[in-house]
């Protein structure tokens, strides 16, 4: 499976060392535990989605879900330790985008979280990230240990638009 690293240059980020043995390419990023780095992750993945004409609504949803998953990985998984990394694996095709976000923490049980929409929790200042991921993605699957989450969004663009973007994009 291929590995892609983002290296910081004076003007931009560049991708190096891309390779893949699989027909449907999975790309990997490894990002230090820094919330400021989420933007480059989103731009990298969403630019791939734009090639396949994902709708604005899909792009909004993906940005939101990646933001929440990355923030959870940095804050709750890696406890903002910049020596730890968030590992991201993503695959974008004409039909769907899959994004895996993994931290170096021990994980957690997502089924133990309180429902933030209940009256007794409605004024809580945290605990809505996973609710939003599940609402905006088609699938959200946590690994058994809970330190990795897979986000899946299907491309809602009309088929003729997708085929045009593949042919000419």
């Amino acid at each position: 499976m291929g590995r892609m690293r983002l290296e910081k240059t004076t003007t931009a980020h560049r991708c190096v060392g891309v390779s893949s043995a699989s027909r449907r390419l999975w790309c990997r990023l490894e990002i230090p535990s820094d919330l400021n780095r989420v933007e480059e992750v989103e731009e990298t993945i969403l630019s791939q989605c734009q090639r396949y004409s994902f709708t604005d609504r899909d792009l909004f949803a993906l940005k939101l879900a990646i933001d929440e998953a990355f923030a959870n990985a940095v804050k709750h998984g890696n406890h903002c330790d910049r020596d730890k990394h968030v590992r991201i694996k993503y695959r974008v095709t004409a039909r769907r985008a899959d994004v895996v976000v993994e931290d170096e923490g021990p994980g957690f049980n997502p089924s133990n979280l309180p429902d933030p929409t209940l009256d007794q929790h409605i004024e809580s200042t945290h605990g809505r990230g996973i609710l939003l991921m599940r609402a905006f993605m088609n699938n959200v699957v946590f690994s058994p240990s809970g330190n990795s989450v897979t986000l899946t969004k299907f491309n809602d663009a009309p088929r003729n638009t997708i085929e045009h973007s593949i042919a000419f994009g």
């Binding site: 909004f60 939101l64 933001d67 923030a71 945290h126 990230g129």
Partner: peptide, 17 residues
């Protein structure tokens, strides 16, 4: 504003309180 995180919602609740 074209994006809002759950952390922003928490901040708005703090401001509301």
């Amino acid at each position: 504003v074209d994006h809002l995180s759950s952390a922003a919602l928490g901040t708005l609740i703090t401001v509301n309180n």
